[in-house]
């Protein structure tokens, strides 16, 4: 009985597992390519979250034909279909940003970029205080 309940909600559990591992990768990992892959995990978990309730057990894909009565819900399919293509376009945009960051800083690790940014700021501060010292 409990097993049946578990199977009933298995889709949602896996969806949530994917969602929290995507969240973990985005928050914990400093590498930007890895972060984008984690963002992709999060995104696909949302696809599953949309598609799972639309499925009807014993139904067929929503292409109308004679001899079939039960069809799964077509609306989530439409929404997710466009989301996937937009998703890959935005993934490309993120990767383009990563490439430019690598060209500017020589690294794609977040920590190193932050420390380099601090160095640059210190240099700026030095430069700006120099005229004051001369006075």
């Amino acid at each position: 009985m409990i097993f049946e309940e578990f199977i009933n909600y298995y889709n949602y559990f896996i969806t949530l597992f994917l969602m929290s591992s995507g969240l973990y990768i985005v928050v914990a990992r400093g590498n930007m390519v890895k972060k984008l892959v984690g963002l992709g995990l999060f995104q696909t978990s949302v696809y599953l979250l949309y598609l799972s309730p639309g499925k009807i057990l014993g139904g067929t894909p929503p292409i109308l034909a004679e001899g079939y009565e039960v069809y799964s819900n077509p609306l989530p399919h439409v929404l997710i279909l466009t989301a996937i293509v937009v998703g890959v376009a935005t993934l490309g945009l993120g990767l383009a940003l990563v490439v430019r960051i690598h060209e500017a800083y020589g690294t794609i690790e977040e920590d190193e970029i932050f420390s380099k940014g601090d160095d640059l700021q210190e240099e700026d501060n030095k430069n700006s205080t120099l005229p004051g010292d001369a006075k």
Partner: peptide, 19 residues
């Protein structure tokens, strides 16, 4: 989120509000 999921209708049911 798992706590929130428990109230959802079971997978594959034809009579859930979405359908």
């Amino acid at each position: 989120l798992v706590y929130g999921t428990i109230d959802l209708p079971p997978f594959g049911a034809a009579d859930q509000p979405v359908n």
